[in-house]
Nucleic acid binder design. Structure first.
Lengths: 187, 187
DNA sequence: AAATAATACGTGACAAGTCATATAATTTCT
DNA sequence: AGAAATTATATGACTTGTCACGTATTATTT
């Protein structure tokens, strides 16, 4: 029994490579890398934050909409959007107006300044997507999205249900809605 | 030319489904779902935070190691670990000792209390991994990890390089190191 | 041996998420 | 119409992650 108080490089390496196959521990790193890379692209494209970019992009594509709509499209919590918007108003990118028809809602819309900021970032972000397409074939992206769909379905299931013994029908629930255009991946 | 200041549900839905195929916008949601689900499992398994769980698990599997080792295994920044450890010492889960051989390093080790906390959470977390295996075949997990590998390779490439015109050899760089055990996915 | 470089860790500042809860407005039920 | 439920938003408190920079210690060069 060697000295417990010192590192064992061999075991550390072994642990590392075992963890390579742990989906749960891979996800944070992959997402973090995506976020960091996105932020760097945006820095080049005028200095928007990720949230600002997503919001300007959505508003540009769709036109005016509510905070909830933005949250739904971005698959995120409305509070995140709610908190991010005031500073965007201050920067002159957007306007926020209480809806006259439904006094609960706030209609968010793009201003010319916001449009300008969007136009500056957009080509850079388009190049980002193009570079992804350069590294992944269409089928690979389809497959990746298929797996992300399936994984997201799984991840949205409550632990109570997953911890329950008789969950024989779970796999079906997870497959359901997962993208149907699924092509055999290369080799 | 309808009223620009009101929502267009049709376009919102269209935007949503287009974004389904945007890998960059899917990742945050998938990761967020994973984190949330993990936190719920941990709540059931004794109330550890995700960071605490990962750290106790690593220490249990590997034995004593440094902060950098933990950060490497967890594929995260050392500062995150560095900040999380003091409260774990306070809770009695771990010890931190300056390494006598290398005065820069801190050796982190499990205490009996930490071992106990680990033992309480471990079966729940094992059930979580089992439930994933129930929903995904071995080959599917291999493929998923293959794509995550490949995606992470891509995401670690600097925007400068990706924005450069002549990146014909990029796809190779992205494929390199991506898991070799790649099996044809089902159907 | 002294100067320089590299490494480990701590810490401040920030971004992007979550959840819970409060409030106001709208819908639905009776 | 009035009560009860639902919905949209705001806000406080928290977690997980990043980067940059400072300091102490060790390793490398000259």
């Amino acid at each position: 029994m060697s000295n417990r108080k010192s590192r064992d490089e061999e075991r550390i390496r072994a642990r590392q490579s075992r963890e390579d196959y742990n989906v749960f521990s891979r996800l944070p790193a992959v997402y973090a890398a995506s976020r960091r890379q996105g932020q760097r692209f945006l820095e080049i494209g005028g200095g928007l934050s990720i949230l600002e970019w997503r919001t300007l992009w959505d508003l540009h594509e769709v036109g005016a909409m509510t905070i909830r709509d933005l949250a739904t499209i971005q698959r995120t919590d409305h509070s995140l959007i709610s908190r991010a918007l005031p500073s965007m108003v201050q920067k002159g990118y957007i306007t926020m107006e209480r809806d006259t028809k439904d006094g609960r809602q706030t209609i968010v819309d793009l201003t010319p300044i916001g449009q300008e900021a969007y136009a500056k970032a957009a080509p850079i972000m388009a190049q980002r997507r193009a570079s992804l397409k350069n590294c992944f074939s269409d089928d690979e992206i389809k497959n990746l999205v298929y797996y992300l769909d399936k994984l997201e379905n799984y991840l949205r299931i409550s632990p109570d249900i997953l911890l329950d013994e008789n969950h024989a029908n779970l796999p079906d629930a997870v497959n359901e809605r997962a993208s149907s255009n699924f092509k055999e991946p290369i080799e």
